[in-house]
């Protein structure tokens, strides 16, 4: 046995080298270029030059504050809706799934096997003005005679909720599955009612899943532009729509880069605050 055997401590670094090297070149370095681009000025015809143009940030924020706030709002509502829909579902599969667990989980992630754009287009069909859902809601009077479902904030938030729901359900399931049923039984033996046992034992133990699920839903939701594009109108435009069109249609790279970084910072800020809040809550219970 040669070099590798004598220098065994090197082995993990050898295994990491290729993958981490790849991520350094194609994940970290691009972030540097994104930041550099966000401080450039000029225009697409004569080229952009690096000038420490901090004004791009002020300009981008001033002009697209509305879309940025709307993105965070839509993402927040969609995350909450996804949580409310998938927690009971994940709980049901974890505690009542029995030998059907794997099949039920497959059904939960089934939407991922239909191309993202195609399943969003399916919502276009479902929510269409002459579709069955809008027709039914008009008949029972929930929707006005010329009321619409498509091209509203509701449609966009519903689309986002749907598209990222499995990201919420899977971590919830994973943590609920690991909850030791004997602890719940012990609580009930000690005269805790079922709801009390749930809120004092099961729910706190599932908090890691709640945290992972909300993160995995909120982050892609805040950056999404497909739902707003296909199910909404410019009135529902999110920050992703702005970044996409400024980058790829108008070729305004500096401002699009500045907006990307602002979005990133907003998300990091929200994640940190949220992690703190959930962490203290866990200590408190």
């Amino acid at each position: 046995m040669g070099f590798l055997h004598r220098h065994r401590w090197l082995t993990p670094y050898g295994l990491l080298a290729a993958g981490l090297g790849w991520l350094a070149v194609f994940f970290v370095v691009p972030m540097y270029y994104l930041a550099a681009t966000s401080l450039k000025s000029g225009d697409i015809d004569f080229g952009y030059a690096f000038t420490w143009a901090w004004g791009n940030y002020a300009h981008a924020l001033g002009r697209y504050q509305e879309q940025l706030l709307r993105s965070l709002e839509y993402a927040g509502i969609a995350t909450l809706a996804a949580f409310l829909i998938s927690y009971p579902l994940a709980y049901w599969i974890a505690f009542r799934g029995g030998r059907w667990k794997n099949v039920l989980l497959l059904l939960v992630i089934a939407p991922f096997f239909v191309t993202y754009l195609i399943r969003t287009l399916a919502w276009q069909t479902i929510l269409a003005d002459d579709g069955p859902v809008a027709g039914f809601l008009r008949t029972i009077g929930v929707l006005g005679a010329d009321g619409r479902l498509l091209a509203t904030s509701f449609a966009v938030v519903a689309g986002i909720t749907y598209n990222f729901l499995p990201f919420m359900a899977l971590p919830l399931y994973a943590s609920l599955e690991q909850v030791d049923k004997r602890l719940v039984e012990a609580a009930e033996d000690l005269y805790a009612s079922r709801p009390v046992a749930f809120f004092k034992v099961t729910f706190p133990l599932s908090l890691p899943g709640v945290f992972a699920g909300t993160m995995l839903t909120f982050i892609p939701a805040a950056g999404d532009f497909i739902n707003a594009q296909l199910l909404g109108t410019p009135q529902q435009a999110m920050i992703g729509n702005v970044i996409q069109s400024r980058f790829l249609v108008l070729n305004d790279y500096p401002e699009a880069s500045a907006l990307s970084l602002v979005l990133m910072l907003a998300i990091v800020g929200i994640v940190v605050v949220y992690a703190r809040a959930l962490g203290t809550e866990r200590l408190g219970t």
């Binding site: 270029y33 982050i219 892609p220 990307s260």
Partner: peptide
């Protein structure tokens, strides 16, 4: 190892649009 674990998590915590835009910035540059 701890740092490597966090580093691996970062791409998953980055919105796709930011990752796409940053890669394009690199290729343009």
């Amino acid at each position: 190892r701890g740092a490597a674990n966090i580093f691996i998590f970062l791409p998953m915590a980055t919105p796709e649009i930011v990752m796409g835009a940053s890669l394009l910035s690199l290729f343009l540059a």
